[in-house]
Nucleic acid binder design. Structure first.
Length: 119
DNA sequence: AACATGACGGACA
DNA sequence: GTGTCCGCCATGT
């Protein structure tokens, strides 16, 4: 268990239900802005355990990119998120502006995000 | 040790 | 908006 992995898991565990974070965002948040792929690797290493909300982590575009061939595939991730109330506007795609969690402003996020999308 | 791969991301065409 | 390429860096072979 490396400090990096511990940091990643600490952040992931903080993501509230119904919110998501991107790999790059997490990497940046823990001081390793170029380690987005390593964040993905940490999620990979969890092996689908439910001890950590790995399903709340996806790429910066808001799309699920995990491999289909794996047991805990993209369908599983999308299903888990939808079960938390996340709305996928497109197949395996969600609105990052609306659902992205911002730890740095967790007490300031208020309605600055997603309140102006109108239509 | 060298080379390929990947749950990523950003820059460019 | 989409498709490619390149940088990143831990793992796997």
């Amino acid at each position: 268990m490396t400090p990096f992995k511990q940091s990643v898991l600490t952040i992931v565990r903080k993501i509230p239900k119904g919110k998501v974070m991107s790999y790059g965002q997490i990497a940046k948040y823990i001081g390793a802005p170029r380690a987005s792929r390593e964040v993905g690797w940490v999620m990979h290493s969890l092996g689908g355990t439910l001890d950590f909300p790995w399903w709340r982590v996806l790429n910066s575009k808001g799309t699920i990119t995990i491999k289909e061939s794996w047991d805990n595939g993209p369908e599983t991730q999308q299903h888990l998120l939808e079960a938390e109330g996340v709305d996928f506007s497109e197949e395996r795609t969600l609105d990052m502006v609306r659902y992205q969690y911002h730890p740095e402003v967790e007490t300031h996020q208020i309605s600055l995000l997603g309140s102006d999308d109108g239509h």
